[in-house]
């Protein structure tokens, strides 16, 4: 049976580098995707190492109550991104300015779908940063609201209310039906 992330991190804490490398192979791609979605593939390539070196350095801060290290890793990635943006003053990838360098435009995407996706960018930009972060962690990174709270370092209740507000705003703008809301906002214990 595979070790949990927590067990791997416990191993790396006591000086087993292989355990941390294993954690990297487990979640390296996910962290890269997190970065690429928000800042583009090129910058993600550049920033990936920094996230992981930072994670390695701060691995003793990992809260062992969580078996999945991804929320913790995304939190580190988020800090790296913020530092990166503060230095480069580069726009977020989902704002309109970034469309020209949009790295994930699929060549085979249907034109009408593409147009709809593009419509979403300005709507996302109208959300507050707090709301948008929770929403995208849930939709893009497939985290639960509780896990998103870990990433953002906020209480679970706050994460849930932010997600709710984000979805309400989107529903107003796009006319999302309630089934979407139910899927994005799963009932959790």
């Amino acid at each position: 049976m595979d070790e949990t992330d927590e067990q791997l991190l416990g191993g790396s804490k006591v000086g087993d580098p292989a355990a941390f490398i294993e954690l990297f192979w487990r979640h390296g791609s996910a962290v890269h995707a997190y970065l690429a979605r928000r800042t583009g593939r090129q910058d993600a390539d550049d920033l990936l190492s920094e996230v992981w070196l930072r994670a390695f350095k701060s691995r003793t801060n990992y809260d062992c109550r969580y078996a999945d290290a991804r929320p913790w890793l995304y939190g580190i990635a988020r800090n790296v991104l913020r530092a990166h943006w503060s230095q480069t003053a580069r726009p977020l990838a989902f704002t309109e300015e970034a469309v020209a360098i949009d790295p994930w435009s699929d060549a085979d995407r249907r034109l009408d779908a593409a147009a709809q996706v593009e419509m979403l960018r300005p709507i996302l930009a109208t959300l507050s940063e707090d709301e948008r972060e929770v929403l995208l962690l849930v939709v893009w990174e497939q985290l639960t609201p509780a896990e998103a709270a870990v990433t953002l370092g906020i209480p679970q209740g706050t994460a849930r209310s932010r997600l709710h507000r984000a979805l309400s705003a989107l529903r107003c703008e796009v006319g999302a039906d309630s089934s979407v809301l139910n899927r994005l906002y799963p009932k959790e214990a």
Binding site: Q116, L135, W140
Partner: peptide, 9 residues
């Protein structure tokens, strides 16, 4: 739509 927006290689 949201998921498509988040699609990356």
């Amino acid at each position: 739509l949201l998921q498509q927006l988040g699609r990356v290689e």
